[in-house]
Amino acid sequence: MALAKGLGGGFPIGALVGFGAAAQLLQPGQHGSTYGGNPLATAVAGAVLAEIEDAGLVANAALRGAELRAAIAGMASPLVAELSGRGLLIGVVLTRPVAKEIVAAAQERGLIVNAAAESRVRLAPPLIIGDAEVAEFTEKFAAALAAVAASTPTGATA
């Protein structure tokens, strides 16, 4: 199992976890890293994971992810085809390849989202978000979707 991304909460660190016999396949001298596992990176990752567990952030991700999905569905935008992902990693699958336009429209309104592909906007907010962030996202993302829907009529962006 390969891990990285949120493991260090912003401090660069990754890990490979071996299961069963696979845990013993790499023998002394067969692989190595000067920096890998250094005290600074592992101390930070340990603190980040402890906070995720102690503060119940996995449960918060599930809760806020459901709220965001409901909010986006509630926008009833003609640009949104479906929602994918899990928890707070959300893919907004679009009916047209206007992800970059949506990202730009959102940024103009003070919201950073990401064009993972031409027809997909990716949301990956921190696991700590609460009511205020969900409400602000809802207002700004709805406005961005509306602006792009108004400026790119169906069929105009083939």
Binding site: A4, P12, L16, A23, L26, G36
Partner: peptide, 14 residues
């Protein structure tokens, strides 16, 4: 639930 860990600096290195 794994048994042993190897640390890297990034996901691609993992």
């Amino acid at each position: 639930g794994g048994d042993a860990v190897y640390f890297t600096n990034s996901g691609t290195e993992a």
